[in-house]
Design a protein around this nucleic acid. Structure first.
Length: 899
RNA sequence: GGGUGAUUAGCUCAGCUGGUUCAGAGCAUCUCGCUUACACCGAGAGGGUCGGGGGUUCGAAUCCCUCAUCACCCACCA
C-alpha cells in the first residue's frame, strides 16, 4: 500500500462504480421515502464555494438517509435563469458579430439552446466531482418542455382564479437587459453622488424662485409639479401658484403633500411621476401628468424634447452645465445615497411606468406566512423565521411583477387580436375558443402572442412539485412529497423559499386531495454565506470565489467537504481561509480547513495500512486487548448516539468533529496503540476481526461526510461480495455504554499521560522501561483490578512493572485522581522546579477547597440543588482534601531532599 | 427609523435544555522525537476573570436588562 492515499484516482473510481450500480437512483417502493430537491443552479453557473457547501450538506443528509435504509432521492437540475443566460448569449452573439435585434426570436432561441446544451451541464459534472449522490436519471431543467408546460398551466390557472392581472404600474427597469425586474432583483448600495439644488422660477414673477434638491437633474425634463409640505411655513404663500420648469419651460403647479419632509434638502421636492416610485404615488394623489422621458435603453425619448437620444448619464452632465449657464444651479453638494442596480447586469435601475403582468400576493403570502408561523414548515436555525415574517407581513407584500421583456423563458400565454381583445390560455386553440365564444370568427392567424416571458422564479417555485411531474403523475408526488428538507442560503428566502411554500399550498391540495401534506418540505436548513478573507460574501458578481475544481484537485473532494462542514454550523457564515487571487481564482496559500480534511483521509488510510501489516495468530486475545475492545466498542456506541442526536437537529459540524475525534483520538491514538503487537509479533485473530468490525462501522458513520475514502477503506477492510459497498451499508445501532468503565479508562489515560510527561521533563527515552508503584488505597485497588487495566498501563506506559505498595517510596510521584504514583529512575530533574510545580498545584487545590466549602456551607445550595449535584460537590471536596494531603507530603519530601 | 445575528485562547470558531465529560476544538506558538501505520505524523507544554456594566439564581459563557463595537436584513433617502 502507498504511504499516501491517492484521492484523485480513488474518487473517480468510486463515483463511476456507484453510478454503474445505480445506487443513487430511486423509484417509489415499499420503503419510506427521503427526498430532497436541489436548489437548481443557473445553467450559466460554475461551481463556487456556496454551491459546494450547500450541496455537500444535501449529500450528507441524502447519504445518511440511504444508510438508514430509507428510499433516498435527491433530484438534481438546473435553472434557465432568464436574465443571466440571455445576457450571456447576447454577449456571445455580439462576439460573433451578431446583434440580437438583427435576428428573430426563433433564431435567438436556437442559439440559446445550443449554448445550454454545450455548457449547461458543466455545473452538474462538477457536482459529481464533489461526490453528490443525486439521482441523475431524474435531472430536470426549468425550461424543458414538461416544466414549461406546467408553468403555462399554472399561469393560466392563476389568471382564471383572478390572481394574475395586467396593469400599468411602476416597475424597476433594467436599461441594459431592457426588461422589467421584480423588487427582489434590485440591489441597493450606497454610492457617492451629488445633491443638486436647482431653482425654479415662480410663474408670473420676474425674480421669485423655489429651490428644490435633486440627485437626478436629468429627470427635470419629466417634472410635472413641485411639492412642499402643507405645514411648511416657508412655502405657505405659494398656494395656488405655479413654477416654470427650467430648460423645458413647462409651467407646473406647486402642490402640497405631507410626504415631503421639511427637514430634507430645501423642503421642496420636484415631482417626476414617471420615474420615481414615490413621485408616482404623489402623482396619482394629485392627478398629475406623467411624462416618460426615457427610451428602453436608457437614452432620452422624444417626449423629453431635449437631449433626445443621449444617454441618461451624459445628459446628467450636460444638463448641469446648461442649468448653470442659465443661472438655475444654487449649489452642488457631495452626497451619499443608495442607488438601485440590477442584480444580473449591474445597470442602474430606472423606475418606469410600464404595462406588465402581476400576480396578486395577498392570499398567497398569507398562506406562506402561516405555514411557517404554525410550525408546519420548520426553519433551521429557527431565528430565520423573523426575517421571513418581516418580509411576508401584509404591509410589506407587493404584487409580483412576473413579466420580463426577454426571449429566454416561457412566453406569456396571452393572445391578442388586432382589434384589441385578449385571451389567456394554454394553447392557441383554447384561446380561439375563448375569443370565439360569442360567435367571433378569429383564426390562429389573427392572434399574436404576448412578446414577454415569465420570470424565472415563476418556474422555480413549482420545482418541488414539477420535478416529480406532480401535475400529471400523482403517484410519484404522493410518494416523494413533501420533500424532507430544503437546503439553501437565506439570501433567496424570499425569491424562492417563500414562493415554493406558496405554490405548495396553492396546488398540492388540488393535486393530492385532502389528507396529504401541502407543504413542499418539512424543514428548511439555511446555510450561511461563504465569505472571503475580507468578509465579503462570495458571489458571482464579485467574482471572489476560488476555483472549486482546483480546490478539489488539491485537497480531494473528501478534504474539501470536511473543510466546508467542519466550520459550518447551520445559518452561520463561514469564512474561507485560503487567500486566492481575485482574477485567476488560483489559491495563493493553503486552506487549513481543507488541509485538515485531507490529513484526516491520510490518517485513516494509514490506520488501515497498520492493520494490513499484521500477521495473525490463533491464540486467545490478551486481557489488554479484551479491555481495549470493550472500551472502543462503548466509545463507538457513545458516538453513534451523539451522531443520531446531532443529525436530528442538523448539527452536522458537531457530528463530523465528534467522528473525527473518535477515529483519530480514540481509535488511532489509543485503541490501536493498545492492541498493537510489539514489533514482529502477530495479533490474535479475534482482536483483529473485532477491530475490522469497528473500523467498518466507523466508515459507515463517516461515509455521509467523506464518501470516497470511506468507500475505499471499506473495500479494503475485508473481502467483499458484489454489492457489499459502504454507500449502501447499514447505519449501526447505538449499543449501551458503562459510564463507570469509561471513566476508569479515562483515568488510565491520565496515568499514561503523566508517565509521558515525567519522561519528557526528565529527558527519558520514551521506551526505557521504568518501575512504577501506586500507593495502596481503596480507589487504587478498585481501579487496577479492572481486568487488563494494569497490563494496559504497563504496555503503553512502557513500564517494567506496576505494583501496589503500602509504603511511601522515594521516587518521582504524580497524582491521578486521588491515587499517588511513583516512578523510579535516575533523577536529573531540578528539585527547585519540582517544588515550584507542587506549590502551584497546592495553591490551586487550596483555593478550590475554599470555594467548594463555601458552596456546601450555603444552606440554600444544599436545599435547592439537585441531590446528585450536591453529592458531586461533597466528593470533590473530599478528593481535594486528599490531594492536598498528598501534595503536602510530596512537598516535604522535596524540601528535605533539597536540604 | 424597524429588525436579526455576532462579540469565548494569537487566528477561525464549537459550547443544544443554567451545576466537573464547562471553559473546549483546529490552526498557530514552544519543547522533544525521522520509534518498523502515518512528519499530510507522534509525545508533551503554554495560552482565555467567555465585549463592559447591572440583575435573576444557592449557582451564569449559558437566562433578563443595559451599554459598546462589528456584520447583515427591511424601510427611507428629493
Amino acid at each position: 500500500m502507498d504511504k499516501h492515499y491517492n484521492a484523485q484516482e480513488t474518487e473517480k473510481k468510486w463515483y463511476a462504480h456507484w453510478t454503474e450500480k445505480g445506487y443513487f437512483h430511486s423509484t417509489p417502493d415499499e420503503r419510506k421515502a427521503y427526498s430532497i430537491v436541489i436548489p437548481p443552479p443557473n445553467v450559466t453557473g460554475i461551481l463556487h464555494m456556496g454551491h459546494m457547501l450547500n450541496n455537500t450538506i444535501q449529500d450528507v443528509l441524502t447519504r445518511r438517509a440511504r444508510l438508514l435504509g430509507l428510499n433516498a432521492c435527491w433530484v438534481p437540475g438546473t435553472d434557465h435563469a432568464s436574465i443571466a443566460t440571455e445576457a450571456k448569449v447576447v454577449q456571445l452573439l455580439r462576439e460573433k458579430g451578431i446583434k440580437k435585434s438583427d435576428i428573430s426570436r426563433q433564431e435567438f432561441l436556437k442559439y440559446a439552446f445550443e449554448w445550454k446544451d454545450k455548457y449547461g451541464g458543466i455545473i452538474l459534472d462538477q457536482l459529481k466531482m464533489l461526490g453528490a449522490s443525486c439521482d441523475w436519471e431524474r435531472t430536470r431543467f426549468t425550461m424543458e418542455p414538461k416544466l414549461s408546460e406546467y408553468v403555462i398551466k399554472v399561469f393560466v390557472d392563476l389568471y382564471k382564479k383572478g390572481l394574475i392581472y395586467k396593469g400599468l404600474r411602476m416597475i424597476n427597469w433594467d436599461p441594459e437587459a431592457k426588461t422589467a425586474l421584480s423588487n427582489e432583483e434590485v440591489q441597493y448600495h450606497e454610492e457617492d453622488s451629488k445633491l443638486y439644488k436647482v431653482r425654479y422660477k415662480i410663474a408670473g414673477t420676474t425674480d421669485e424662485w423655489v429651490t428644490i434638491a435633486t440627485t437626478r437633474p436629468e429627470t427635470i425634463l419629466g417634472d410635472t409639479a413641485i411639492a412642499v409640505n402643507p405645514n411648511d411655513e416657508r412655502y405657505s404663500g405659494l398656494k395656488g401658484k405655479s413654477v416654470i420648469v427650467p430648460i423645458v419651460n413647462r409651467t407646473v403647479p406647486i402642490i402640497f403633500d405631507s410626504y415631503v419632509e421639511m427637514e430634507f434638502g430645501t423642503g421642496a421636492l420636484k415631482v417626476t411621476p414617471a420615474h420615481d416610485m414615490n413621485d408616482n404615488e404623489i402623482g396619482v394623489r394629485h392627478k398629475l401628468e406623467s411624462i416618460d422621458i426615457f427610451n428602453d435603453n436608457g437614452t432620452m425619448s422624444e417626449l423629453a424634447k431635449f437631449y433626445v437620444g443621449m444617454d441618461r448619464f451624459e445628459v446628467r452632465k450636460q444638463i448641469v452645465k446648461d442649468l448653470k449657464a442659465q443661472g438655475h444651479i444654487v449649489a452642488i453638494e457631495n452626497y451619499k445615497n443608495k442607488v438601485g442596480r440590477s442584480e444580473r447586469t449591474g445597470a442602474v435601475v430606472e423606475p418606469r411606468l410600464k404595462e406588465q403582468w402581476f400576480l396578486k400576493m395577498e392570499k398567497l403570502s398569507a398562506m406562506a406566512l402561516a405555514a411557517v408561523e404554525d410550525g408546519d414548515v420548520r426553519f433551521y436555525p429557527d431565528h430565520m423565521i423573523n426575517m421571513y415574517r418581516n418580509w411576508l407581513k401584509p404591509e410589506n407584500v407587493r404584487d409580483w411583477c412576473v413579466s420580463r421583456q426577454l426571449w429566454w423563458g416561457q412566453q406569456i400565454p396571452a393572445f391578442y387580436t388586432k382589434d384589441g381583445k385578449m385571451a389567456v390560455a394554454e394553447t392557441v386553440e383554447e384561446a380561439l375558443s375563448i375569443l370565439n365564444k360569442d360567435g367571433g370568427k378569429y383564426t390562429a392567424e389573427d392572434l399574436k402572442q404576448d412578446e414577454d416571458v415569465i420570470d424565472t422564479w415563476f418556474s422555480s417555485w413549482l420545482w418541488p412539485i414539477a420535478v416529480f411531474d406532480g401535475f400529471e403523475n400523482k403517484e410519484e408526488l404522493r410518494y416523494y412529497y413533501p420533500t424532507n428538507v430544503l437546503v439553501t442560503g437565506w439570501d433567496i428566502m424570499f425569491f424562492w423559499v417563500a414562493r415554493m411554500i406558496m405554490a405548495g399550498y396553492e396546488w398540492a391540495p388540488e393535486l393530492l386531495g385532502e389528507g396529504h401534506e401541502a407543504k413542499p418540505f418539512n424543514d428548511v436548513y439555511f446555510t450561511g454565506m461563504v465569505r472571503d478573507k475580507f468578509r465579503r460574501k462570495m458571489s458571482k458578481s464579485l467574482g471572489n470565489s476560488p476555483d472549486a475544481i482546483e480546490l478539489i484537485q488539491k485537497y480531494s473532494a473528501d478534504g474539501v467537504r470536511f473543510g466546508m462542514l467542519s466550520s459550518a454550523a447551520a445559518g452561520n457564515d463561514i469564512v474561507f481561509d485560503a487567500p486566492f487571487d481575485d482574477k485567476s481564482k488560483k489559491i495563493i496559500n493553503e486552506s487549513k480547513m481543507c488541509e485538515l480534511g485531507r490529513n484526516f483521509t491520510n490518517k485513516m488510510w494509514n490506520a488501515l495500512k497498520l492493520l494490513k501489516g499484521w500477521n495473525i495468530t490463533e491464540e486467545k486475545p490478551s486481557a489488554v486487548n479484551l479491555l481495549a475492545m470493550k472500551w472502543i466498542e462503548q466509545k463507538l456506541n457513545e458516538q453513534i448516539a451523539e451522531a443520531n442526536a446531532g443529525f436530528e437537529s442538523y448539527r452536522l459540524s458537531e457530528v463530523l468533529m465528534g467522528l473525527r475525534s473518535l477515529i483519530w483520538d480514540d481509535f488511532c491514538s489509543w485503541y490501536l496503540e493498545i492492541i498493537k503487537p510489539v514489533y514482529g509479533q502477530p495479533i490474535d485473530r479475534s482482536t483483529l476481526d473485532f477491530t475490522i468490525g469497528i473500523f467498518e462501522k466507523m466508515m459507515t458513520l463517516l461515509h455521509p461526510f467523506m464518501p470516497f475514502i470511506t468507500e475505499e477503506l471499506w473495500a479494503n477492510l475485508r473481502a467483499r461480495a458484489t454489492g457489499d459497498d459502504c454507500v449502501v451499508s447499514r447505519w449501526p445501532e447505538a449499543g449501551n455504554c458503562d459510564a463507570k468503565f469509561l471513566q476508569a479508562v479515562e483515568k488510565m489515560k491520565v496515568v499514561v499521560q503523566n508517565i509521558r510527561d515525567v519522561r519528557a521533563k526528565n529527558q527519558l527515552p520514551e521506551k526505557e522501561q521504568l518501575k512504577m508503584l501506586v500507593k495502596d488505597s481503596e480507589s487504587a485497588r478498585d481501579f487496577l483490578t479492572e481486568a487488563g487495566m494494569t497490563e494496559t498501563i504497563v504496555k503503553i506506559g512502557f513500564l517494567e512493572s506496576l505494583d501496589i505498595s503500602s509504603e511511601e517510596a522515594d521516587a518521582t510521584s504524580f497524582l491521578a485522581g486521588t491515587e499517588q504514583y511513583f516512578l523510579f529512575f535516575e533523577k536529573k530533574v531540578n528539585i527547585a522546579e519540582e517544588i515550584a510545580r507542587i506549590k502551584k498545584e497546592l495553591e490551586y487545590f487550596q483555593g478550590f477547597v475554599v470555594s467548594i466549602g463555601k458552596k456546601l456551607e450555603n444552606e440554600k445550595f444544599v436545599q435547592n440543588a439537585k441531590p446528585e449535584v450536591v453529592d458531586a460537590e461533597r466528593k470533590k471536596l473530599a478528593d481535594s482534601h486528599e490531594k492536598i494531603k498528598l501534595l503536602q507530603e510530596e512537598l516535604e519530601k522535596c524540601l528535605k531532599a533539597e536540604g
